[in-house]
Design a protein around this nucleic acid. Structure first.
Lengths: 204, 204
DNA sequence: ATTGACATGTGACAGGTTGTCATATATACT
DNA sequence: AGTATATATGACAACCTGTCACATGTCAAT
């Protein structure tokens, strides 16, 4: 978390700094990020930067956290609008996510942030996991389980976690080649169908 | 790929260098790796290092590639022994992978390599994808599709890719906390069951 | 208005990094 | 022995990060 000083800053300056950080994250993968570029761009001194943030990781973590929070809010809202059908909901959410990524115009930023989240198994995982947990909780509380074969807590967790895995894989593939977005969406829909009805023929 | 010079080296020296690289990858996440530490450890000069490898990425990529190749070979072998039942096969493969990771004694190395593969969406992805493609191909050629509802090529791809997503998620979770390995294994088995039979009750 | 306490701004700096290159040495071949 | 080719080396430029002593702002109380 940034130091208090950062939050005391006049909004204009805070925004300017964050803009510079976003610009830098968009420019290169996280491990190549240069504080020098950021402070030059934001027109602040080196010393100031370290008065706002503990270190490089701190600023990256903060921006990452913020981005994930946004995504999460959008996901939760989409789900609320889906009347409890998880399977339908995740399709809508995927489409929304695709559009959000494309519309934002800054694919590199989203891509590098996504990589960051995936990378940071130890450090950021806490917030990523919390984020997932939070979403899972809302899903569990609001989803319609009447049609499920297994209704116990564990089974629902298994199901949701599985859907999330596939969701994440799909998003990664979309980032890898944005031109395949539509194909990947269709694939996701087919995979959800498999989960719903099973891959194996019932023995008559 | 390392330069020719590296492969011309006497095996003892080559091994010594690779050992030093493995040691360094085990020590810290990929983005914190220090060439200085490696050359000091391997007792070679800075200049020599750059005569063997193009740059830092080159050596990491090489070691990563090698590791993935090993895993792939083990997976393919496990599958060959499973008589075409993909669902059973992936369970055996997961167990084998778990044991391989634990037995290797060097969890940090595996963990950091895994992160590297996940991270490197652009760079290493080619080989990771090739690796997956290669496995997929062997699966497709050898699997028993008689019990599947959908037997066309696309449907089989969807199914396998989906299983892989869940597999990867499970492995990641096992790395995150090795003590949960057994629980994650059980969860994986349950998830495979869902894929086989579906999550939704048939309407009678 | 002056003082002092505290918040914020600054750039030079130490100590680290990577990749290069001219030069030195070893090996192989005529 | 002499030359060509392959390998070894550490000093080096050009970057990097995080720190710190000091400069400047801000604001409340005297």
């Amino acid at each position: 978390m940034p130091k208090e000083t950062f939050f005391n800053l006049p909004e204009e300056k805070r925004e300017r700094i964050l803009m510079a950080v976003v610009k830098e994250i968009s420019r290169v993968p996280i491990d190549k990020i240069s504080i020098n570029k950021i402070i030059h761009d934001a027109e602040i001194s080196r010393g100031s930067f370290y008065q706002y943030f503990i270190d490089k990781d701190d600023v990256i973590k903060y921006v990452t956290y913020d981005y994930i929070k946004n995504i999460r809010e959008r996901v939760v809202e989409s789900f609320r609008a889906s009347e409890g059908d998880v399977f339908k909901a995740v399709e809508i959410i995927l489409r929304g996510t695709m559009e959000y990524i494309i519309k934002s115009g800054n694919i590199n930023f989203s891509k590098n942030i996504l990589i960051q989240v995936k990378t940071d198994v130890e450090k950021t995982i806490a917030l990523a996991v919390n984020s997932t947990d939070c979403i899972l909780k809302i899903f569990k509380e609001n989803m319609d389980i009447s049609k499920l074969k297994e209704k116990n807590n564990e089974a629902i967790d298994d199901l949701l976690q599985m859907i999330f895995s596939i969701f994440k894989e799909t998003v990664t593939r979309i980032f890898y080649d944005i031109n395949n977005a539509e194909l990947e969406y269709e694939r996701f829909v087919r995979q959800i169908e498999i989960i719903k009805w099973g891959a194996i023929k019932e023995i008559k």
